[in-house]
Design a protein around this nucleic acid. Structure first.
Length: 446
RNA sequence: GUGGCCAUAGUUUAACGGUAGAACAGCGGCUUGUGGCGCCGCUAGCGAGGGUUCAACUCCCUCUGGUCACCCCA
């Protein structure tokens, strides 16, 4: 019976030639809303990370989302995919070429130079940053066009301890979050020794029998970035690289010493790593130590790297600053959250209230509002809904919130200067003199 | 950017060339000062556009979005 009019209404509304101006405007591709449930995970990751990072003496800093496009072209590299294909860029009204940050390091380097941080009393300068970045890639799970990263950088420290220490910090964060990761580590040498190695590598790949095994992409890589030949997943390319010269055998003495020491420190700190001679990173500025954090059990771990970083000793100078050795890493917050969910790691329910304050009637509502302020000042974890007037819906809410006790103040209690305390589990309730409420609460919440 | 798979209420889903059923959630009632359980009721949907057809949620195309692989990357 009730259906006919419903259908008619529908038909009518269809026939009205309403334009589509009432259509929902959906969110952009690859963009996500971080809803409260997800946000709890975000907080978990950020809180644990910050706790550890701060302990190691890093200070939080922030940088603009929008920068001069040249900043990224020069640091990240104009040829890299990140800059050449994935950046959101536009010409500003006054003609400036600007871009939204696709990574944090260039901005942090710029900030370091611009504020003369090499003059700061405490050296090296240790900074961390938490925020979001944008890359216009085709979205996938664990890959969004806007994503969050936790970044950590050290400026002004050349010694291998620093390398080991930042790896250790990331390692501790993952451990605290109960995520098993493999540290993949390699050294890609410096500007002194790498060119010679790249030449050797290119020479090796030029051999006909090797070259014939390469996939199409790798043939392109030979011209663009021979180092990239090493981390192709194609089976034939993996075969081809078997005999390839390895960079660790071609490092200059300084680079080798540095790398060996990094590994020694890691050994002593019980950080388990996998020396991966095929690990090279996609950004132009790296030298010496490079590393990534791969999820433990995943075969395609490479693609879902939870974080990565390395040394960039020449970048500060290259960007116009004084010669300053530096290093850092970035962790992908969304990917870490994905892992935490996969592992069913429970959230600490710290925000949960213990007490619900219910009221009935205008006068008691006023009293309850004042009482609630008192509870807040005295640090009780209390909840309320003064908007709802009937007791039923208030108790329903109290139940959903999972509180232990509900305090009820109605007309009668107002008159008697009392309050009802209801134990939500047993359903037992008792009337108490208002003056003795706190005493009773403390007893029951203990 | 390339290729594969996918798209039904807020969520998880069912069915069908003749315009959709369920579960959970939400709201209301049984209970006008008492939550959980139960019962009853209500709300709410074919991603968008085009084509084929007497008839399309169903078939075809395009787009949009998701997902997976590649490229690349966190």
């Amino acid at each position: 019976m009730g259906r006919k009019p419903k259908n008619q209404t529908k038909r009518n509304s269809k026939e009205i030639p309403k334009k589509n101006d009432n259509k929902v405007i959906a969110r952009l591709r690859g963009m996500r809303d971080m809803l409260p449930e997800e946000h709890q995970y975000y907080r978990l990751v950020v809180n644990k990370s910050e706790e550890i990072i701060k302990y190691y003496g890093f200070s939080q800093t922030d940088i603009p989302a929008l920068e001069n496009l040249s900043l990224y072209e020069r640091s990240t590299g104009k040829q890299t995919d990140v800059v050449s294909k994935e950046m959101y860029t536009f010409i500003d009204k006054d003609g400036d070429r600007v871009g939204i940050r696709p990574e944090a390091t260039p901005g942090l380097v710029r900030s370091y130079i611009e504020h003369g941080m090499f003059n700061q009393p405490i050296q090296p300068v240790k900074l961390y940053w938490i925020g979001n970045l944008m890359r216009r890639e085709k979205p996938q799970s664990g890959r969004y066009r806007q994503f969050s990263q936790i970044d950590l950088e050290i400026f002004g420290e050349a010694g291998p301890v620093a390398d080991a220490q930042i790896i250790l910090i990331a390692n501790r964060i993952f451990k605290d979050l109960q995520i098993d990761v493999q540290v993949q580590i390699n050294s890609i040498g410096c500007k002194e020794c790498r060119p010679a190695y790249v030449d050797k590598l290119a020479e090796y790949y030029k051999q006909r029998q090797v070259r014939n095994k390469l996939c199409q992409d790798c043939k392109k890589r030979m011209l663009k970035n021979p180092l990239r030949l090493l981390d192709c997943k194609e089976e034939s390319c993996r075969e081809a690289r078997a005999e390839a010269p390895q960079i660790v055998d071609h490092l200059c003495e300084e680079c080798r010493d540095h790398f060996v020491k990094v590994l020694e420190y890691l050994d002593e700190l019980d950080v388990i790593y996998n020396l991966n001679p095929f690990l090279v990173r996609g950004l132009d500025y790296y030298n010496r130590t490079v590393f990534e954090f791969w999820p433990e059990e995943n075969e395609n771990a490479r693609q879902n790297a939870l974080g990565g970083g390395g040394r960039y000793d020449d970048l500060v100078e290259y960007m116009g600053g004084r010669p300053t050795p530096a290093l850092g890493w970035g962790l992908g917050v969304e990917r870490i959250i994905l892992k935490i969910k996969e592992n069913n790691i429970p959230l600490a329910d710290d925000g949960k209230p213990d007490i619900f304050l219910a009221q009935l009637g205008e006068a008691s509502k006023r009293k309850a509002m004042i009482f609630f302020e008192e509870l807040r000042k005295k640090k009780y974890k209390a909840a309320q809904n003064f908007v709802k007037d009937n007791l039923k819906s208030q108790l329903e809410l109290a139940d959903k919130l999972g509180v232990k006790l509900t305090l009820i103040i109605g007309q009668k209690e107002m008159m008697d200067e009392t309050v009802i305390i209801r134990d939500m589990e047993s359903g037992m309730q008792e009337v108490f003199d208002f003056k003795k409420v706190y005493e009773e609460l403390d007893k029951r919440l203990k």
